[in-house]
Design a protein around this nucleic acid. Structure first.
Lengths: 242, 242
DNA sequence: GGTCAAAATATTGTCGACAATCTGCTCGAC
DNA sequence: GTCGAGCAGATTGTCGACAATATTTTGACC
């Protein structure tokens, strides 16, 4: 599972202008949060971060303001910042919103994907199928991520891309690697195949419908797992499987 | 047309803690941008803003960092910040993304709207109809905005609400009041009615489909107007009519 | 009038100091 | 033992100064 890239920066970096200290610190701290190296509700103390990130307090405050705006950090006046806790209810919402946007992206990909991109999707499908046969669910999960990333990239829809990246960044708590819901991967492979078929056929309506079908099952899976989790605190952490 | 509220703040304001100087300055500057009081590409000079907003440069820098992250401002190292220009191509993307999210919101509204909320929608429909008969397109436009806001509010989907608000804030350049595309309002009223019918009937699939139908026509209208605009520089500014 | 280099000006990026606020601990009163 | 006041320590919020960078202006030269 790759780390999510930071959002497309509105800090214009053209003409040889180097990044500010805050830019690099932002990328680092964001990655630490997204990768789960910092835990939900963990205190983010300016002075400590300044030391860790190798910048001054000014830059840290800029970074925290940005991360707060992005929804990864919560801040209380005079009490500092913490890594924001995403509840399971919100995770479901994020999944739904992400689903709506990924359906749009699939539609756009059906109109814009190049033959090379479609070939990549086909190859990824083959790899995912092989992983499934070999029972290697972790590698399947990686293939799954590559598939979704390629579809989004092929859409060339910068707004959807930006929003999806932001939503993904907030789901770190729900992305531990583990065994998937039984049977989910096999169904997911069929669903992914239908999506790629539609994209390859340059059929936007079919691509969107296939993606929506796929993602409605993802949301259903999350809903079930959330419900099961509430009833059995001992259930293992899980991966939300797009 | 109401100003868009700032995004739900992750600055926790409980237990009597007052807002920071940056919080209030952020709200003010954001409103100035969203309301079109500041123009695309306009320079945002820290010292000037400090005077205008009545805060110090520290707070201004925090505000600009937040607005940059939100996509309303662009920033170049050592060259300062500007109000971000949204191109017509991006406006179309934003409309599409917003459409996908509003369809999700309509679906959720169909499951969660209270009788009072539905009554408000009915009343708004009646007002919009009366405005249409009276030829008062500005008032129709206001009704339209109220309708959409109520649907989103009824969805109780905080993630969709948050994303939609952010997208709306970026569309200020495309929100001048003027006469709508001929015949668009009449069709829009029918479309709105179908949405409300589905919400009232607690039918999520129908609500979503009706909203998607409505919004696909909005995107088409924007596409046409964009195309016409490119061909005829003299065409008047227009309102993107959701 | 045009070009170029240097100087002046405007502005951003950063720092350290200090004020303000919050939390936790200690101690005395009851 | 409980409660409240006071204090110390931790941390955030803010300021002003200065360094760094970019842009504009000025003056010399052709």
């Amino acid at each position: 599972m790759d780390a999510m890239p930071p959002p497309v920066s509105t800090t214009v970096g053209s003409n040889g202008r180097g990044p500010t200290a805050a830019d690099e610190a932002y990328a680092r701290l964001r990655e630490d949060i997204v990768r789960g190296r910092l835990m939900p509700n963990q205190r983010l103390v300016e002075v400590d971060l300044a030391v860790t990130l190798g910048v001054g307090r000014t830059a840290v405050r800029t970074v925290l303001a940005r991360l707060e705006q992005e929804g990864l950090v919560v801040h209380e006046p005079n009490r500092g910042a913490r890594v924001r806790m995403v509840t399971e209810a919100e995770a479901l919402e994020i999944t739904q919103a992400r689903g709506a946007l990924e359906a749009l992206a699939a539609r756009e990909a059906a109109e814009k994907a190049t033959p090379a991109e479609v070939a990549f999707m086909r190859e990824t499908l083959a790899q995912m199928s092989a992983c499934l046969k070999a029972g290697d669910l972790l590698a399947y999960s990686d293939g799954n991520a590559r598939m979704h990333a390629k579809i989004i990239e092929s859409s060339r829809h910068s707004t959807a891309t930006r929003l999806i990246a932001g939503l993904k960044a907030q789901m770190v708590r729900f992305q531990y690697r583990t065994v998937l819901v039984p049977g989910r991967s096999a169904r997911s492979l069929v669903e992914h195949t239908r999506i790629v078929d539609a994209i390859e056929a340059a059929d936007p309506d079919a691509a969107e419908a296939a993606m929506r079908y796929h993602l409605s099952h993802v949301a259903d899976t999350l809903r079930e797992m959330t419900s099961a989790h509430a009833q059995h605190r001992a259930s293992p952490p899980h991966l939300v499987h797009f």
